[in-house]
Write a protein that binds this DNA or RNA. Structure first.
Length: 803
DNA sequence: GCGGCGCTTATACC
DNA sequence: ACCGGTATAAGCGCCGC
């Protein structure tokens, strides 16, 4: 038989000791099918220059290797001699085919340290990755599959153990040129009495998809909504959840933080209730790996935790201060969560349950919308890095870069370099830092008519232009002229980014936006990848050279701009700000072109924007200009604020909002006069305690377990108090507190005056004035020669009205 | 008991 | 541990007096 097929879920299984690949995907008509494919596991033995005779001898030795286990016998099936490249050098390599991929590493080790063997490689590449590389059966691409039916007894009876109608055994795959795939997606979300599955129970599970909404629960308030289905108890509800998922038959089951909460919680509760939580098509419950952040795999259905993908790929580009579902969905899809007061949980009225159902369903709906929004991005990362959906939604940026390389190495006949093991990681980390970017110290002041130039994808274009990589390093800080595969692949990434960006601007679509964006993100992560201790293609020398050449380029650009008569105001890594002076924009652009004509390689300086005004302040307590802290306003009146407390989430809202207002006023008016009134008013309100407590709450992230802190900051004090109260305190959470007045002598330690938001205490006016409000604004007023601290001090001695 | 200062910590920029 | 270095700044905690 022949049919069109899109592989979605990739898995492998053993039969008679051998590896087989199990693909689950959709046919052209949308039918879910399983395709089984063969795979011949193999790894490489890279040889040093050796005579033919000796090679034959080595092959004979290798062919003898055999591993006997209880479950299987693994041996070397065959050995082929291949001409390959390893780190850019031509080598003779033995491709060693073995019975089972799981034994590849051990067999590779058994070969032993023979003088003629340079290295053993690719035993540490994931089986599915090797399969995709070698078969060309890539995730979410469309294939014409030629296959034969699988009988009931074939492959140990897989047809009866797998809950899928059609199972076939592949003979041949032919890749077709088709692009679109719309997966069947089901979003879910749960509510529970406690975050800890050993202490609480699941109260309800909501499911949401196109034309589908349901809340499963065992609470039965009168007047409940039509989408609510009530079951006898938690156990029956869990059974119903499994049934609903199976009936819906999604390609993708998605949740938000579902690796960390929803899926493991349900799995634990099912076990406790002795419910067969067989969500997988293989009749098994979700499987959690033992990674730092466990990922929940459901056989045959791709479980996507949106939080994981957003946090790895988007978080640094988002405005959201936390990665909570509410904030991220608010920013990306404009959909909001409903309110529900969890305090009520201990004493729920009928009406509260009805609100809770609605809240629960809305979370699934928001999750579904969020999935729809980021699906093009997930899809593009999948296609570009050629890794399956499950992996793509769990990898971090370094993983994406690495997978892109691994899946494109065959064009260079390159054997994949090994992953560093713990000793090597330790060695790399022990090397310490290397010199990074250059930052120019600005002179504090308010400037008019600024120009910002910046290098496009600076580090990536440096890597390409100077050919910086592991395989091109020749020692003594020199890199070869002959193009390496890493810079070559990176130049392709940059080219594609350019191409798709242009295409997108011509005809905008979600897909083109995502594609252009994915290439941009890959390019931006490439420098960090080469300096990352966990990278297969780690090269500290390349990373250090990248920053060195970047510094050279920015310095030379600064010099050119200065030599042309402009006054430099600021520069950070890849950008330069200078005063336009009496030159026209046209002249500036012409000058930019002149600079560009002489830049090396693919380096490119771009006009970022013209700004009407720019504010630069000093560092606290000095006259030195502060780096990474400035505010601009462009000619459309759009402000751009960097580094100021306004953009820092660990300052209270009052200080942030006030500073923001003052910065904008200064940028618009060109002076501080109006802002002085704004400040006076806020100080007055604070002293009269007219400021609401919510504007004085300070939020700080708890970045490690409470016990691991050497220094007990205010947020650690607050976290300890929360824990004492029985609140689940977890690493990564935002701790909220305010500073209040205590009875007795005022302690110097802020931590002694910390209160949780719901605690009864008067906020400490002095603290908020001296530690939040004044520090946030004094450097701005200082630019205009106004000393607000003196004013405030003087005022405290005098009357309130004076200030 | 108090000021100074180094260190720890969080967060931002690019 | 899951991309890098550069930078600001608050608050703790220890030291010396």
């Amino acid at each position: 038989m022949k049919f069109k097929f899109i592989p979605v879920d990739f898995d492998s299984f053993d039969f008679e000791g051998r590896n087989y690949i199990r693909l689950i995907g959709r046919t052209a008509s949308g039918k879910r099918v399983c395709v089984i494919d063969d795979y011949e596991p193999n790894f490489y033995v890279i040889l040093k220059e050796t005579g033919e005779k000796r090679i034959k001898g080595i092959i004979q030795e290798i062919e003898k290797i055999k591993i006997e286990r209880l479950s299987r016998v693994s041996k070397v099936e065959k050995v082929k001699v291949e001409e390959k490249n390893f780190l850019g050098k031509k080598v003779k390599a033995l491709r060693v085919y073995v019975t089972n991929h799981k034994d590849a590493h051990e067999i590779a080790s058994k070969i032993g340290d023979v003088r003629e063997i340079e290295a053993r490689r690719e035993y540490d590449v994931a089986l599915i990755t090797k399969y995709i590389k070698e078969s060309g059966v890539e995730p979410l691409e469309t294939f014409e599959v030629e296959a034969s039916p699988v009988g009931l007894d074939d492959f140990g009876g897989i047809a009866s153990s797998l809950e899928i109608d059609t199972i076939v055994y592949a003979k041949n795959f032919k890749k077709l040129k088709e692009e679109k795939f719309s997966p069947k997606v089901l979003a879910f979300d749960i509510e529970a009495t406690n975050m800890d599955a050993s202490k609480g129970e699941a109260l309800m599970i909501s499911l949401y998809s196109k034309n589908f909404k349901k809340v499963l629960t065992w609470k039965n308030p009168p007047g409940k909504q039509e989408f609510v289905e009530v079951f006898k108890n938690e156990s029956e509800m869990l059974n119903a959840f499994v049934k609903e998922v199976k009936k819906f038959a999604p390609d993708i089951l998605t949740g938000y933080f579902s690796d960390g909460f929803d899926l493991p919680f349900l799995t634990v509760r099912a076990k406790k209730n002795k419910v067969n939580f067989n969500l997988g098509l293989d009749g098994k419950p979700p499987f959690f790996n033992r990674a730092r952040i466990p990922s929940g795999r459901v056989s045959g259905i791709v479980h996507v935790d949106i939080y994981r993908f957003v946090s790895a790929v988007f978080s640094q580009y988002l405005q959201s201060e936390t990665l909570s579902l509410g904030e991220v969905a608010g920013e990306l899809v404009g959909e909001t969560k409903e309110d529900f007061d969890f305090e009520k949980l201990s004493n729920m009225k009928d009406k509260d349950w009805i609100d809770f159902f609605s809240y629960n369903l809305q979370d699934s709906k928001v999750t579904y919308k969020l999935f729809e929004k980021i699906w093009p991005d997930i899809f593009e990362f999948c296609k570009i890095t050629k890794e399956p959906l499950f992996e793509v939604t769990r990898n971090r940026m370094a993983g994406h870069v690495e997978n892109f390389i691994i899946h494109n190495l065959d064009r260079f006949d390159e054997v994949v370099e090994k992953k560093p093991v713990s000793e090597e990681i330790g060695r790399r980390r022990g090397l310490g830092k290397y010199e990074g970017a250059f930052v120019y110290e600005p002179k504090p002041g308010l400037y008019e008519d600024l120009v910002f130039f910046d290098f496009t994808s600076m580090y990536a274009s440096v890597i390409v232009s100077y050919n910086l990589s592991l395989s091109t390093y020749e020692g003594k800080e020199k890199f070869s002229k002959k193009k390496g595969f890493f810079p070559e692949l990176l130049s392709e990434i940059i080219e594609k980014r350019k191409k798709h960006k242009i295409e997108y601007s011509k005809s905008p679509s979600g897909m083109l936006r995502a594609r252009s964006n994915a290439y941009k993100l890959l390019a931006n992560a490439s420098y960090g990848y080469q300096g990352f201790f966990g990278a297969r293609y780690y090269s500290r020398e390349a990373a250090a050279a990248t920053t060195k050449f970047a510094r050279e380029n920015i310095h030379s650009a600064i010099k050119k701009i200065k030599d042309e008569g402009y006054e430099i105001i600021y520069s950070d890594t890849d950008s330069i700000a200078f005063l336009r002076g009496n030159k026209s924009k046209k002249e500036i652009l012409k000058f930019l072109e002149k600079i560009n004509s002489k830049l090396p390689g693919i380096m490119e300086l771009d006009l970022e924007d013209f700004y009407k005004r720019g504010l630069f302040v000093s560092t606290r307590g000095t006259t030195k200009g502060a780096k990474k802290k400035y505010a601009l306003i462009n000619e459309n009146g759009e402000p751009k604020i960097r580094g100021f407390e306004t953009v820092r989430r660990d300052w209270c809202n009052l200080a942030r909002a006030l500073q923001n207002k003052i910065i904008e006023s200064v940028l618009i008016n060109g002076n501080e006069r109006e802002s002085l009134d704004v400040l006076k008013q806020v100080v007055e309100e604070l002293k009269e305690r007219r400021i609401e407590l919510k504007d004085l709450i300070i939020r700080t992230q708890l970045r490690r377990p409470i016990g691991e802190y050497v220094s007990e900051g205010p947020h650690v004090v607050a976290a300890k108090r929360m824990k004492k109260r029985g609140i689940n305190v977890t690493t990564g959470m935002l701790v909220e507190y305010f500073v209040g007045e205590t009875s007795g002598k005022k302690s110097k330690k802020i931590g002694d005056r910390v209160f949780l938001p719901d605690e009864k205490a008067k906020y400490d006016v002095d603290y908020y004035l001296n530690n939040q409000i004044l520090p946030a604004v004094e450097n701005i007023f200082e630019v205009f020669g106004v000393n607000v601290k003196e004013m405030a001090d003087g005022k405290r001695q005098m009357s309130l009205g004076e200030f």
